[in-house]
Design a binder for these strands. Structure first.
Lengths: 225, 225
DNA sequence: TTGAAACTTTCTGGAATCTTAAAGGATAAT
DNA sequence: ATTATCCTTTAAGATTCCAGAAAGTTTCAA
């Protein structure tokens, strides 16, 4: 799960980043209008935290542009208490939620979690496929109702697969969403291979009815076997 | 479990009612301010779903009155996206949760379930799990009916675990709920480790059938062993 | 068929995380 | 004020995890 935090005040930015990372999200940041725009339109984020008041431009402009692309349902607005109009405008532009400064970091992560759940889980508490069931909140995976233990990366990878079940998973997509900043060089996907290997082993041993198939030259696909 | 749904739009009201009934709840409804007030003050509900925008009055007024009675912890607010201030006010008035329209019905029932669990737990005099029984009021813990003595923090930690049994306990969550304001920096959870160690030792020595399992990089889980 | 690229598997060292023990402060009771 | 109890901090050791490397296998294209 990759999250972009757009916020110009360094201290706050750092706190937000840290607390999100503690929740195992992949976090990227932008602290001014231009770099924010750049990132937003180049990369794909699962959730965007957007401060309205930015140097060189308003976050609302970013939102407007996102709106044209039809990708605003994962935006959470961060705004100062007195800019009520901005807040309302933001929600009219399709933002999913808002937070008023100052806020508790716990509240922030809760909102992020809620947005991600709404958009990926549609209200359910688990993602199911075949006899595999994954509970994001409890970081628990069961196969035929029997719990199996996965470590962090294995869990994140499987989750990404399940969210994108039946879809083709590119290695760059996987790297971006599960690893984050690894991608810049990305001439070598050994770190992915390693996790895939282990995940396959565990799924197989537990008798999963799904398998991770390699698509040569492209990536992977999760299929019922 | 009896639930009251206060909502003026007939279609939505019917859908909510149906999906709750499917979960075997007893459901009653009200579609305007007056009949809502009437029901709320005559009967006792385990959970109330409250739409803020109502004909003839605001749901907030209902909430205010409930607040005087000290019974708002089982209220879930349903609000339209643009009535932001209402939402905030609602939570300030002690509502337990809120949902923004439009929402998935699965999410609604999940929230209801959560509220009910929170509140029914308070109702009982002990929280039990395996052969462990904790009495919050008297701050007493027994294992196989045999009392064991815990210190303050040990007790609080165990209670937090028991309230959230089967759920994943994050260290930040634990810090927040048991320690309070410690969390602000919280790059170091040694104070938690210490309590966990002692608690484990005492549970083990007393022959508890449950154990605190570490989840690497995330937190803990209380499981039957 | 053959070589190159893509993919799989196994191993390993170091980093991050967790556990435990012990020492020093804080707090509450007497 | 003194003592006993409890809590936090410190520090050292154990465990778990993961990127990277290396070696082996499969797939593709010429």
């Amino acid at each position: 799960m990759k999250i972009l935090v757009i916020e110009d005040e360094p201290g706050l930015l750092k706190s937000i980043e840290d607390s999100l990372k503690k929740e195992h999200y992949v976090v990227e940041t932008a602290s001014d209008y231009l770099s924010a725009v750049e990132k937003v339109f180049v990369y794909d984020y699962d959730c965007i935290l957007l401060d309205i008041m930015l140097p060189n431009g308003s976050g609302l402009q970013i939102l407007e542009q996102l709106n044209e692309k039809g990708k605003t349902e994962n935006v959470i607005i961060i705004s100062a208490k007195d800019s009520l109009d901005d807040k309302i405008k933001g929600l009219e532009l399709g933002a999913d939620d808002y937070l008023t400064k100052p806020f508790h970091l716990a509240e922030l992560t809760a909102r992020v979690k809620a947005v991600l759940r709404r958009n990926t889980l549609e209200g359910k508490s688990t993602i199911d496929y075949g006899n595999v069931s994954l509970d994001p909140d409890n970081r628990k995976v069961t196969i035929n109702k029997e719990p199996i233990t996965l470590n962090r990366k294995e869990f994140d990878v499987l989750k990404y697969f399940l969210i994108n079940k039946n879809r083709l998973i590119t290695r760059t997509g996987l790297a971006e969403h599960v690893w984050g900043d690894h991608i810049d060089q990305a001439d070598n996907f050994d770190f992915i291979y390693y996790q895939i290997t282990n995940l396959r082993k565990k799924l197989d041993e537990a008798g999963a009815s799904v398998e991770i198939k390699a698509v040569y030259g492209v990536g992977y696909k999760l299929e019922k076997s």
